[in-house]
Amino acid sequence: MLRLVLRRLLESVPLLIAISLVTFFLLFHTPGDFLAALRLDPKISTEFLNRETERLGLNHPWHIVWLRWLWGVVRHGDLGHSFTYKIPVASLIGARVCNTFLLALTSTLFAWAIAVPLGIIAAVRQNKLADRIASAVAFLGLSIPAVLLALVAVYFAAVTGAFPTGGMRSDTYFMLPSAWERMKDIGRHLILPTFVLGMGGLAIYTRQMRSNLLETLQADYVRTALAKGVSYRAAVMRHALRNALNPMITLFGFAFSDLLSGAFLVENVMAWPGLGRTTIEAYMSKDLFVVAASVLMASVMLILGNLLADILLALNDPRIRYE
């Protein structure tokens, strides 16, 4: 297992380097740079602009800038400085990565906690009313794009006032008396984004869970279990379910990519201070290193998510060995 993890991590290194290379190449071939707005201002002297270009390290060709940045990352773990905020990129996006991760975690838990029971009910009561309702819900969830659901959620929040319309904290957050109150505040802000982001996964997981379980219920070992007198409930929960869960875990690895892209949109609609929102802001202001680091971080999260799925798969199914 340890060897698998190490090998996968080593394999991802060239991939990450390639991703950062492409990011730098693309960003350097776009119109304007961070100083473009200042250049238009006639009151700002050319010497100052040149000095600034040099200070930011933008006077070199793109591959040199990239190599220097890469060297900094490898040597010191330094992701560079944000041009806009004038602080190290690591401290800028560190908190944002955590926020995106928090959102991804809660929405995944939400989706699984509902999808797995729903899928089981739908499979056990195949073609009965419960199954039809579950399928309809899943189909609906699959067809509502995250952007739309997010906008409708904001509309709902604005009209009813039951939930905050966006952001992660209330204005009074830092005046709240206790850590518990603060957690409750963040929790209240989390509800709608979690729901919106979880819906897509919920639909996919429910349908997949249903068809997996239907398939495993046909298996000989389930019939054997039933024949030797195991109750139907135990046959489903102890024998069939565990095998039906395997493809779900693989699906989780694939779904992580969608989750990150979905989070990108939900964060922008609902003003959640996560990685996606930071990326698009930095992209608009051509804050080079912030964009590069964000893309890198998102890719790292994706790779780790897939790795986690592989590990979970091996833990759930002793037949799987990665050698």
Partner: peptide, 18 residues
Amino acid sequence: LSIPSLYLIIALRAYFQT
């Protein structure tokens, strides 16, 4: 497949614009 698609789309979009 290993870059989250929207991040890549944003970067490509800027490139093709110029």
